[in-house]
Design a protein around this nucleic acid. Sequence first.
RNA 1: GGCCCCAUAGUCAAGUGGUUAAGACAUCGCCCUUUCACGGCGGGUACAGGAGUUCGAAUCUCCUUGGGGUCACCA
Length: 476
Amino acid sequence: MIRTRFAPSPTGFMHIGNLRTALYAYCFARSQNGKFIIRIEDTDRTRYVEGAIDRIYRTLDACGMKEDESDRIEGACGPYVQSKRGKIYAEYAKKLIELGGAYYCFCDKERLESLTDEIGNRKYDKKCASLSKEEIAKLLRLGIPYVIRQKIPTCGTTLYTDLVFGEIQVDCADLEDNILLKSDGMPTYNFANVVDDHLMGITHVIRGTEYLSSTPKYNLIYKSFGWDIPQYMHLTPIMKNERQKLSKRDGDANFEDFTAKGFLPQAIINYIALLGWSPKNNTEKMSLSELISAFSIDGLSKSSSIFDEAKMKWLNSQYIKELPFDEFNKLAIPYYENSLIASKYNYSMFSSLLQQRIDILSEIPEMVAFIEQFENFDTELFVRQKLKTDKVLAKLVLPKLIDLFKNLDSFEHQSINDSIISLCENIGLKKGQVYWILRIALTGKESTPGGGIEIALLLGKNRSLERLSLSYSLLH
RNA sequence: GGCCCCAUAGUCAAGUGGUUAAGACAUCGCCCUUUCACGGCGGGUACAGGAGUUCGAAUCUCCUUGGGGUCACCA
C-alpha cells in the first residue's frame, strides 16, 4: 500500500510551493489507491505561528484534497503533530546510540562557534564521538546539557536513487554529524522526519529539493535502525524569476491572497500542477480528479520553473466562463459589494455581461465603476482609425443620438437597435461608427463590460441622455 | 568556496540517436463584431557555448558558462 505524506511546518501562510508539494503527494497517493497523510512538523516552537495549522487545513479543504490520516482525522499512526511525539523521539534516539548510529555531545555554543571557518561555514569536529562510556555517564550525572548527534562514517560514499533525479551520490566526508535531538529534548527535522516516516509507514517521500543532498544522511539513519528506506521524489522549487524563489513576503505566493484576488481554487491547483509536471497527452485544463488519473512520476520535471500569473489568469478565465451562471453571480457578489455600484443595481445584469470577459473576479469593481463615475474624459477616445471615427464625426452624430433617444417610445434593446439602424441609413454611416461613438459618449471608457446598447440599458434613458449631452458639450 | 542538482522561445513545456523541434500562455497580424473582450485563423521567436562519440545529436560523453540547492540546537 502506497502511503505519502504532506508535512508542513506551521510557520505562516500556505505557500504556493508547499501547496504543489501537497498536490503531488495527494495525486500520487490517490492514483495508486494509496493513503495521503498530513503531519504537522512543529518541533521548532520559536517559529510557530498561531493559526497556521488552521490555514493549512482550510487551504487543503478549499482545494478538495482530503487526507486519510491527520491530527483531525483519526489514524493508526498518531499523534500526527510532532510536538506531541516527544517521547517517541527520545526513545528512538537512545536506541540509535545503542546501535552505534548516534552519540551524546556536550559541546557548548561557544565551542561550536569556534569551529567556524573563514567563509562562515562550520562543521562539527566529532569531538564527543570519542568520549568514553565513563566520561559520558559522568557528564550526564553532572547534568551537563547535551544534544544527540548522528554518527556519520568518516569515509566512503552513500547513494540512493531518487525517482525524479536518478542516482544521487554523496561522500560521507562531506556530511556533518548533525544534531538529531536538541538540548530541549525536541528532535530536529533530520531525525523527526526519519522516525515519523518510518513509524507512519510512508512509502514515498515527496518534498522539495532542499533535501536532495541531505537524503543520504537520512538513509544512514534508516540503515542503522535496520529500517526499509522509502522511495524519494524531490521537487524543484517554483521561482519568481530566474534567480529568486517565489517570495513569501510579496503576498503573491500565498494561496489565500490569490483566492482573495478572485482566483478560483481549481484554477490555482490546475496551474501549479503544470509547473513542474506535465501529463502525457498535453491537456492543460484538468480538474483534480483528472489530475489524479493523469499523474505519473515520469512527468515530473528536473528543472525549476518560473511562476507566470498571466497563464494562471488565463486558466482562471476558462474556469469562470464555464461556471453555471448562478454560481458565477454568487461568487461575484462580494466584488460588487465592494464597488461603486454596491447595492444600487441588480447585480445579475452585470454578471451576464461580465462572466465572459473577466479573467479574475477582482477585475469587477473597476469594470463596473463607470456606471457611477462619469467625468470629463479625453475626447480623443472618439478617434478610432479602424472605424474612421473622430471628434468631428462625434460632434455630428451625438445630437442625432440625443434626438433619437428622446423620441424613443420604448427603451429596450430591439427598438434602440432598430432606430440606430435607420439613423445609419439616413446619414450614411456604418453601424460600428455610431455604436462606437455612442459607447464612448455613454462611458468615457475605452473598455467596458458591454456594447453601447447594453450600457444604455444599464444606465436608463434619463442618465443616458444626460451623458450624451455632457459628452457633446465636451467637444466644444 | 566545498559538495549535490539543473539548462529547448519572454514563460510553462513535449521530445529519450534520424521530427518541417509539438502544444499552451504572452506577443504581433488578420477575420468576425456594436468598442474592448469573447471566438476563429495565421506569424515571429528556442535546443546556452565549445569539443568529442556517431553515417547522423536537442537527445550520449567531457569541458566552459549560467542558474538553483546545501553546508544551523530551521525545516
